[in-house]
């Protein structure tokens, strides 16, 4: 046993980058909502990108550590403390056995991530450690964490151990020590309104001119009926020029579909594999972390992006991430 759940928070689940290869059988991809925050969190503690983390939503858990560990917290700002002393996100933290790591309410953003060196050790199921809440499988017993659950850490790699030893020495007798370097991972908005880019969808041209205009010119509000499956938006009703019966086909994360009531839905991590509503657009992978951190009541302003620019931006971010990884290794004296 390495970590015990004292209070579980609102919706705390074990997730990794997702379950691929099983959509043909109707199995949702699942996985973390904010991939960028998780990529950085895993990088900071020396993990692989695919290692499992905890995803926290709006209100985080309290966790009792029964083992010394190297951790990182990225994404939303949840007012985190260790033994009631506040700690900072986006950096490596060494935490001593017997300490209590406590997350509060989200101050900014909607989701935070807790990565531990080595990743959380839950069974690999159909190639993934992600929790599928609707199907009640994967992750930790196929469900959200509950009080009393005991989580286990996988063995950390050589780099993680090197960094952990370094921080442990600096900690002296203190219950924890935070590295003096950090990597920003925040994609949450400051003024309650996010600009989210959109690749035009297959049926974009089938919407009325007025709807196409208001889609980009007006703002949409994230409704309270938004979750890991999808973000339901409220705003100007989007109307087709003529009603259409579409043949159901695969849908992907970021798909903005418009049901007959004209209010768009952005499909997220726990989306179904197949859908049949008109697709007005797709949020590009690069902007999904922004959506993942929006909370009910916050607003979205859509802006068009070409497929070319969306893919270029993704490639550039990948190069940046590789440079950051190298930078971390140099900073801590591993290279």
């Amino acid at each position: 046993m390495s970590v015990e759940v004292i209070t579980p928070g609102l919706c705390t689940t074990v997730q990794d980058t997702g379950r691929f290869g099983f959509q043909q059988y109707g199995v949702s991809v699942s996985g973390v909502m904010d991939k960028q925050a998780v990529q950085i969190a895993n990088m900071i503690v020396g993990n692989q990108q695919t290692d499992a983390v905890l995803e926290l939503t709006m209100r985080g858990p309290s966790l009792l550590f029964h083992k010394d560990m190297l951790i990182a917290i990225c994404g939303g700002d949840f007012k985190v403390t260790i033994n009631d002393r506040s700690v900072l996100p986006n950096r490596a933290i060494w935490i001593r056995s017997g300490s209590i790591l406590k997350f509060g309410l989200a101050q900014e953003g909607c989701r935070a991530y807790l990565a531990v060196a080595g990743g959380w050790d839950v069974p690999l199921l159909m190639g993934s450690r992600s929790t599928n809440l609707r199907g009640s499988f994967g992750g930790f017993a196929g469900r959200m964490l509950a009080a009393g659950d005991k989580l286990v850490q996988s063995s950390p790699g050589a780099f993680s151990q090197f960094l952990a030893n370094q921080l442990e020495k600096k900690a002296g007798a203190a219950p924890f020590y935070q590295a003096n370097w950090f990597i920003p991972s925040n994609t949450f908005v400051k003024n309650g309104e996010a600009v989210v880019r959109v690749i035009l969808g297959e049926q974009f041209a089938d919407f009325s001119e007025e709807s196409r205009q208001s889609f980009f010119e007006q703002t949409f509000q994230v409704s309270t009926q938004s979750d890991r499956m999808g973000y339901r938006l409220t705003g100007p009703a989007l109307e087709l020029t003529k009603s259409m019966e579409l043949i159901s086909a695969a849908v992907t994360i970021g798909t903005i579909q418009v049901p007959p009531n004209g209010q768009p839905i952005i499909l997220m991590a726990d989306r179904q594999t197949i859908g049949g509503y008109p697709k007005i657009g797709y949020v590009p992978t690069i902007d999904l972390p922004i959506v993942a951190q929006l909370r009910p009541g916050e607003k979205i302003h859509f802006q068009e992006i070409s497929l070319r620019d969306a893919q270029k931006a993704l490639i550039e971010r990948d190069s940046l991430m590789k440079a950051i990884k190298l930078g971390i290794e140099v900073t801590v004296g591993w290279r």
């Binding site: 043909q24 043949i247 695969a250 490639i315």
Partner: peptide, 17 residues
């Protein structure tokens, strides 16, 4: 990454990187 058959389509997911 994977492919998904539909009524009239096959959708192929890939990694742009």
């Amino acid at each position: 990454i994977e492919s998904v058959p539909g009524f009239t389509t096959v959708t192929v997911y890939y990694d742009p990187i």
